[in-house]
């Protein structure tokens, strides 16, 4: 790691103020940032530890949803009785990611801001527009089995690795932030991540020094919930694809540089299409690259199975 200075923020306001310093970054769980700093992919000059800010609470909102503090650990959210009761799919998505040790450290805010696990991003000897703008994309014509099938660009075909974010997207959650100027913003999770375009190094809608303070989940839609993830081993692995279903809402994971809200599929469902037809309509817009062609049928089949699980759950059948 390059040298950096470190401070523990006394308050959220102090944190965003400190973040004005050049090269400053927030750190909370640190599981992704330190991973990348060790590889010299991230080299912040100053770390602001926001991990102990009193923003870890999980509370019911008056509307019947939840407000989850950004510093809540993944484990805390997954284990929370309210989360398990109202948004079981969110709990299940969280425990589908990482390991218990990582989930004990990782925080909700940081989880949303995870960077891609693309092998070419992780190898500093390879071109990567996200790591080094203008250097090219090693994955585009490389071993891109796990590359995106939606929303990619010639500059970047990486995927977003978060499970939780996929669930939150299907749940229509929003993030609340504190901006550098001290103002507050509310951004839909679905809009938090940018499409790569020709600037894949610009990853989110957040401004410099803007801090996620909470995630607000609206009341669960009617209908069942389910989350399924397919990966190369049974646990402790990134996914090849995942599907989150909340009522009539559908989000797909590991298929794009952001959690992919399957709006075409949702619209088809509203129009009365059956699940296979609906997801087919979404996948009509997929652009696989060859080595990741399998993601199209995989998502098609997984989505149908996950929708069936959600229906069964709505009918009191529990988890499939």
């Amino acid at each position: 790691m390059r040298p950096f200075t470190y401070e523990r923020a006394a308050s959220a306001a102090a944190a965003v103020e400190a973040a004005q310093a050049p090269g400053a970054r927030f750190i909370a769980g640190g599981t992704n940032l330190l991973d990348l700093m060790k590889l010299d992919i991230e080299a912040p000059a100053h770390l602001i530890d926001v991990g102990r800010l009193p923003m870890a609470g999980i509370e019911a909102t008056d509307e019947g949803g939840l407000r989850i503090g950004a510093m809540a650990t993944n484990t805390a959210v997954a284990s929370d009785p309210l989360v398990r009761a109202r948004f079981p799919m969110l709990s299940e998505a969280i425990v589908a990611g990482g390991s218990p040790q990582l989930r004990n450290k990782a925080r909700v805010g940081g989880n949303l801001l995870q960077r891609t696990r693309c092998a070419y991003f992780y190898d500093p000897t390879k071109p990567c527009n996200k790591r080094q703008p203008g250097s090219g994309c090693g994955a585009l014509e490389g071993l891109n089995r796990n590359a995106a099938i939606f929303g990619a660009s010639p500059s970047c075909v990486a995927t977003h690795p978060s499970d939780m974010a996929v669930a939150l997207t299907a749940l229509d959650a929003r993030v609340e932030t504190l901006t550098a100027g001290g103002g507050a913003r509310s951004i839909p999770v679905a809009d938090l991540h940018r499409a790569p375009g020709d600037t894949p190094h610009l990853e989110t809608a957040l401004d410099d020094g803007e801090l996620i303070t909470a995630v607000v989940v609206p009341p669960a839609p009617t209908g069942g919930q389910a989350y399924r993830k397919v990966r190369d081993r049974a646990s402790y692995a990134g996914g090849l694809a995942s599907v989150a279903v909340a009522g009539g809402r559908l989000a797909l994971g590991m298929v794009a540089l952001k959690p992919w809200r399957a709006t075409a599929a949702e619209a088809a469902l509203v129009d009365g299409a059956d699940p296979a037809e609906a997801i087919g309509r979404e996948l009509a817009g997929a652009s696989p690259l060859g080595r990741n062609d399998f993601k199209v049928p995989l998502v098609a089949r997984l989505a149908v199975a996950t929708m069936a699980e959600a229906r069964a759950a709505a009918n009191g059948g529990g988890q499939g």
Binding site: R117, A119, D123, D232, R233, S235, A237, G238
Partner: peptide
């Protein structure tokens, strides 16, 4: 391509 233990897939306990 696989340069670490996240990318190189070893069996874990659940397998």
């Amino acid at each position: 391509v696989n340069q670490d233990l996240a990318q190189y897939v070893l069996p874990v306990q659940a397998d």
